[in-house]
């Protein structure tokens, strides 16, 4: 967890020089692209574009893209396998015993699996090239979020590694006490409580010390806090966003004019999700 969230790297690259707001908008665009276009070809194109952005524009080391996204890759692979087996169609590709793979299933599988990878990839690029501090500052300055809100964002990031450590300790401690075991539902429920309450207790008690420390440093004294650091908003950021909006346009054009075999696949997907069997 620590590794993914604090992956900001001091390397200089094109994306490092862009302001966080532009990158945030870009991230939303990626989200839309990935969610709206449920066709494998668009997803593959998007994936390639993102890989290009990651390696060339953000200078993310090629290997670390794969390492960081390991859980997503695995999940995507599971989805790929299950979907391509389950979904039936007209064009049979492979048949091994009872297992059949149809072209239609394969296409839905690829598009659903890659969609997740693409969204995650976008986030990796964003986190890699954006200092969290700059993000918080620019969200305050440009989007007008109150200081307490942006500081809360900082805090959330601060608490993440702390809570993770706390969690590991707690799991270990409870294991030793012999918590666990019984399979009955009430026992499970009380186990949940037995775990959550001390966990939240430790977290909250620590957090209250943080609150005291912040209060004693005049936190919230002035609603218009002025940050010591400055964030630049260069033109290149706007151009970057514009470029991606154009890409959406192109994709939309291709899909709506039937250049990409989409409609058919989409219907399959909808049919499938509608109700089982």
């Amino acid at each position: 967890m620590k590794e993914t969230i604090f992956s900001y790297n001091l390397k200089r690259s094109f994306l490092h020089g862009i302001d966080p707001i532009s990158k945030l908008i870009w991230l939303v665009i990626i989200g839309i692209l990935a969610m709206v276009f449920q066709t494998p070809f668009i997803q593959i194109a998007l994936f390639l574009l993102l890989m290009g952005t990651a390696t060339i524009l953000a200078k993310v080391p090629f290997l670390s893209v794969f390492v960081k996204l390991k859980p997503i890759w695995i999940l995507a692979l599971i989805i790929l396998v299950i979907q391509s087996i389950v979904i039936q169609g007209d064009h049979l590709l492979v048949k091994i015993g009872p297992i059949t793979v149809y072209l239609e299933g394969m296409m839905v599988a690829v598009s659903v699996g890659l969609r997740m990878v693409n969204i995650a990839l976008g986030s990796v690029i964003f986190l890699f090239s954006t200092h969290p501090r700059d993000l918080a500052i620019s969200v305050h300055e440009k989007l007008g979020l109150p200081v307490r809100g942006t500081q809360a964002f900082f805090l959330a990031l601060r608490f993440l590694p702390l809570l993770q450590d706390e969690y590991e300790d707690l799991v270990a401690a409870q294991k030793i006490r012999g918590a666990g075991g019984s399979k009955s539902l009430t026992e499970k429920f009380s186990r949940l409580k037995r775990f959550t309450v001390p966990f939240l207790f430790c977290g909250l008690r620590r957090a209250q010390i943080t609150a005291m420390a912040m209060d004693s440093k005049a936190f919230g004294a002035n609603p218009n806090k002025r940050y010591y650091h400055e964030v630049n908003y260069p033109l290149s950021g706007k151009i970057f966003v514009l470029g991606w909006i154009i890409i959406i346009g192109i994709f939309y054009y291709l899909v709506s004019n039937g250049y990409v075999q989409n409609i058919e696949q989409l219907r399959f997907a909808c049919d499938y999700y509608r109700c089982p069997v």
Partner: peptide, 17 residues
Amino acid sequence: AQLCCMCVEDEIVFGME
């Protein structure tokens, strides 16, 4: 628990900001 920022520098300027 008593540090509320992510970077050393931010922590020190926090109060002054």
